[in-house]
């Protein structure tokens, strides 16, 4: 990896064992992946990470902050990089904990190369997906923020499946006024259809009343 060229994707390898770190790095390089290595969790957290899709390959047992601790810390800091755990001694409770916390994969050393590569690929895919979803959600929230309080009211009743007439009655106004609000809502939320708006409201977690 060079600083000049921003890669399209990157794999972060965090392992205190230098030879393991090098081996994993070599394997990923061999299939054309860009790799960034760290000897400890702190080093990783302190590093400048490129804003491209990627995933992290973490040794569960790290000196200082352990792999599981790092995973938790990443969540707390809003770092959405998918995590693949590798461990020298996979014990079930630990892997369950890791998977619950959202790990992509939990691999026990020594592992098949394909397993790691598959996990890395799906991790990157997941990240890419996640990034896309997070971008969409940001757009929706942006639209939502532009709505007036009345328009929000109207929107929540619309997605709850009420007809304009019923909404007008509920809000004590005319059906025509509701129609205008509704079209503003559709416009601001950039919704193509009612179904589209319903999906959006679900994503935003708007409660139907």
């Amino acid at each position: 990896m060079t600083a000049a060229k921003i890669p399209s994707q990157v794999v972060f390898v965090i392992d205190d064992d230098a030879s393991m770190r090098d081996a994993v790095s070599r394997l990923l390089n061999a299939v054309g992946l860009t790799v960034q290595t760290f000897a400890s969790a702190r080093e990783f957290l302190a590093g400048r990470l490129p804003d491209v899709p990627g995933c992290a390959v973490l040794d569960v047992r790290l000196p200082g902050l352990s792999g599981l601790d790092l995973q938790r810390e990443m969540v707390e800091r809003g770092i959405h990089i998918p995590v693949i755990f590798i461990t020298g001694h996979g014990d079930i409770p630990m892997s369950v904990q890791a998977m619950k916390a959202g790990a992509v994969e939990f691999l026990t050393k020594p592992f098949r190369d394909q397993d790691l590569l598959d996990a890395v690929r799906s991790g990157i895919q997941l990240d890419r997906q996640g990034r896309k979803e997070r971008a969409e959600l940001a757009e929706l929230r942006d639209g939502l923020r532009q709505l007036t309080p009345r328009e929000r009211e109207v929107m929540s009743l619309v997605v709850a499946g009420l007809l304009n007439k019923q909404i007008a009655l509920r809000l004590g106004t005319s059906e025509k006024t509701i129609k205008i609000h509704r079209s503003h809502v559709m416009q601001k939320m950039r919704a193509d259809s009612l179904a589209d708006l319903v999906r959006m409201s679900q994503k935003l977690g708007i409660e139907t009343t």
Partner: peptide, 8 residues
């Protein structure tokens, strides 16, 4: 640890 590295 070394075995994992060897395999990889």
């Amino acid at each position: 640890q070394p075995l994992g590295a060897i395999v990889t």
